[in-house]
Design a protein around this nucleic acid. Structure first.
Lengths: 251, 251
DNA sequence: GATAAAATTTAGACAGGACTAAATTATAAG
DNA sequence: CTTATAATTTAGTCCTGTCTAAATTTTATC
């Protein structure tokens, strides 16, 4: 019982678990449980459909499901989710780097192809890219063994004024946002500083790019929520964020 | 109503129509009709399932279906089949040439991916390959407009003894056959001559390769049925077979 | 031309996945 | 601690695509 549909559910559960990351681990230590509604919204399905699938995932031990409480992935379910995410991100990078798709096009394409490439092809793609660490949006690529780096980053929206940082990753789901960011020169790896924060949750004023050639620009708080930044390699314990060789990517 | 399943049916109907090519055009001029059983066998389904789908294809005008007689594709159905075949063959060539899959691996991979690539990606792949004419097995690739070359070839099994010819294409569905042919140096474009034909439908003895470096080998009649050869550009009217730039394909 | 054999279609069932509407459980407010 | 509301699940339906078994039509044979 493995289908494109099931893979989509597993991926969504995994990602929602990560996003709700801070929460208490719940029953066993597998991360916080995710609720039916939020999952339904993410997958653009009705809660009833999701509820139905939860039962089936639990039956085949891909998830643990407590009715009315939520689901979380079993080890097996998480591994499967990570394999799908690995294929997704490898495909995104491949499509951008080798076939010249722009970074706002690769997500949708990868979203379909991720369910249909063989392990052999996955390996060839990874090899052709030199076993890359991150995708075009700056997201880390799980290893073949299912290890995923967790960069120590924060939303640009919460970056203090005057604190130097650089863009770690950007949300990959919204092509309009990606085109907008590209137009501002805001790619993963680019340094920036928040120069001003408009009161009452207004826009952020930024200086984007290396100090010598920095441009000023303004982004809405909504956009700033979807851009994650990393602080310069400081004393903090978090692993240094993986870097992206952006040489031949068309934004 | 377009799904991977429907695309598979259309492709199979198209190919069976082509294979039964000689037959009389049937009702309108759209080619011979294909029967339920042969289609069922090709798709590895039961005749009942096929019969059911035939009705649905007819309802949406992708095929003309006369119960107990067979089906043939409408213009719309044929266009759709050719688009799928184009994607399939482009993918096969891309996987072989750019990702180093061997020619016995590309068919299965393309069989799945052909249903999931966007028109944009299809175009990028074609461009990356320089708008190629044939796939790694020597089969012509339909144009974006749905035109398909029909090389004037014949099965190796029917090539007269002593008649010089060269390999035009080989069946792509059987990995074992492809590995065997590769081991014999039998790729599209390679010249050969039948030196002897064992009596009672036995094996064929061949000289394979350019005269200077020809190797002798023996192939079963079963294999020889699945290899198509073209005669040297003679006076005959048929269009010259498309050629394959085999430079960087791993057999 | 009647009849046996082969091909094909219908009928009925099932699994995967999704939806709506109705029932149920949790949660929050008083 | 009771009740209204929100979240969730169940019940029932539908569509796609497949199957088996039974009925039907063609085709081939005598």
């Amino acid at each position: 019982m493995t289908s494109a549909t099931v893979e989509d559910y597993l991926k969504a559960i995994y990602q929602l678990q990560q996003e709700a990351g801070g929460g208490e681990p719940w029953p066993t230590g597998a991360g916080p449980a995710v609720g039916t509604s939020v999952l339904a919204e993410r997958l653009a399905l009705t809660p009833a459909s999701v509820s139905n699938m939860m039962g089936r995932l639990a039956q085949v031990d891909l998830a643990v499901y407590v009715p009315y409480q939520g689901v979380y992935l079993t080890v097996e379910g998480e591994q499967m989710a990570l394999r799908v995410i690995r294929r997704h991100r490898l495909l995104e990078l491949y499509l951008a780097e080798k076939l010249g798709l722009s970074w706002d096009q690769v997500h949708d394409e990868a979203e379909r192809l991720e369910h249909h490439i063989s392990p052999t092809l996955e390996a060839r793609i990874a090899a052709a890219l030199g076993d890359p660490q991150v995708d075009p949006h700056g997201h880390p690529i799980p290893t073949p063994g299912g290890e995923l780096a967790h960069p120590a980053d924060l939303p640009l929206a919460r970056l203090p004024v005057g604190q130097p940082a650089s863009i770690g990753s950007v949300g990959d789901g919204d092509p309009d946002l990606l085109r907008y960011l590209a137009a501002q020169g805001m790619y993963p790896g680019v340094p920036l500083i928040v120069t001003e924060r408009e009161p009452f949750a207004g826009s952020l004023h930024l200086r984007v790019g290396p100090a010598a050639t920095a441009r000023v620009c303004t982004v809405s708080l909504a956009a700033a929520e979807r851009v994650r930044v990393t602080l310069p390699a400081a004393a903090a314990g978090g692993a240094a964020p993986p870097t992206l060789d952006r040489a031949q990517i068309a934004y």
